[in-house]
Nucleic acid binder design. Structure first.
Lengths: 250, 250
DNA sequence: TGATAGATTTCGAAC
DNA sequence: GTTCGAAGTCTATCA
């Protein structure tokens, strides 16, 4: 795992270290250092001299962490070019990206630690996404409503896609918009647009709109009511302390 | 900066290390290790045994990085309780959070490196946010249109706020929706809702809707046209290679 | 505390 | 390459 470690490397040593390992592209490079950081691209930022943890991953992503927060102080999700060189006696790291054109530049004032870590990838699974909800509801649409028949999923209509497209027991079309978490007014507007689009594309049809989510905000409920749309509570996970035996999706 | 470093610590040593430093709450704790990770809360996830970099920051944030991506494989933006203990001969880290109720559990199978880093905070400035655009346009509305007079900013109407509320040279009301980056159809719908709200609240007034952004997607342009709304190109930053002398905001 | 909208959002999928 | 929408989004702001 730990391929190489340097303590308080000199600027030229650090530059060589970074260059060598990012070229090889098989390790995560980490530098703990006092440095200044400049970013220019979608926005422009400057971080004064301070202590940061710089991470350069194999996939070309760059992130510079400060003392706080899960978000790096500066980052680059992908880069097309990472290079390190000595400039005015200091190691300078430049991470560039085209499309969008942007650059993160780190000037190391004093490096305390440099690591090259080889990280094996391993399996990862996550459940509880909206996709999972959709699968569960498609398998068992009666959770939404007795007699509902799913006609399609991710039905594309103009811009965007209808999560679930169905027909109710009375033959009306039903557009279902799913949210894995509490739904706000945005979700209702999204639903309203889909319902509108279906009404235009299927003239004469009666089209219902249903927002299916674990909960809704009060304003969202208002917008639902104004638009003649419906809300159906769908609980993805049972509440930890709930003794109620309720139909849940997982 | 480097307060303490352990190489291949035994489970009990690692647990004591983590407990001591997270209690003290003055350093960033990092552990490079082979581990398994479980998360349960808003969703549920499992990471198989693999090599990860675990970061515990002073503010209680937790992040576990894999080989790829700027995003951690698991994380916790805030925690109410972090604890480490030995369980079945292994060091186990549990990071909990109430509201929402969620837990990240890291089981260390083999720790390779543990660090305690003291990171001084330093100044940070960023420019180019939508707020900055709004300030610039409020100072100089003629960038949008000659003769425009700004009446209000962040005007609250029902749900949400109008970025810029103005009057044009012909006395018509103008609702301006700003986007710092390329605007999609969502932005247009947002604008349309604001225009609609103003029309309802100011009966009889002629209300224009203007989307001001560096660019728009093709579908967004269509929605604009259908809704009788306008687009005004507002370039926040001059394109790096542009020789055209254009009015820019910064 | 709840709701809303921005973010250098990131990320992945579909076209 | 674009566009779109989800995300365990996170974060700040404001009622």
């Amino acid at each position: 795992v730990l391929r190489e470690q340097l303590s308080s490397p000199a600027p030229d040593v650090l530059a060589a270290f970074v260059t060598r390992h990012t070229r090889a592209c098989d390790v995560l490079v980490q530098v703990v250092a006092e440095c200044e950081i400049e970013y220019a691209g979608r926005a422009v930022s400057t971080a004064d001299a301070g202590q940061y943890v710089v991470l350069l991953k194999c996939d070309g992503s760059v992130q510079i962490h400060g003392a706080k927060g899960v978000k790096p102080i500066n980052w680059q999700p992908r880069t097309d070019d990472i290079s390190a060189h000595v400039e005015n006696g200091r190691c300078v790291l430049v991470a560039m990206r085209r499309s969008p054109e942007e650059v993160v530049k780190v000037t190391f004032l004093e490096a305390h630690l440099a690591l090259a870590l080889e990280l094996e990838e391993a399996g990862f699974t996550l459940s509880g996404s909206e996709k999972d909800m959709q699968d569960a509801l498609a398998r068992n649409p009666s959770v939404i409503e007795e007699g509902l028949v799913v006609l399609d999923r991710e039905l594309l209509i103009g811009v965007g896609g209808v999560d679930l497209y169905a027909r109710d027991r009375e033959g009306r079309l039903v557009v279902v918009e799913l949210k894995r978490a509490r739904a706000g007014h945005e979700a209702v507007h999204q639903l309203a647009r889909y319902v509108q689009a279906v009404r235009e594309q299927v003239p004469g049809a009666v089209v219902r709109g249903v927002l299916a989510a674990p909960s809704v905000t009060a304003p969202a409920l208002e917008v639902l009511a104004r638009g003649g749309l419906e809300f159906k509570e769908v609980t993805a996970f049972p509440a930890p302390g709930s003794s109620v035996v309720q139909e849940t999706l997982f």
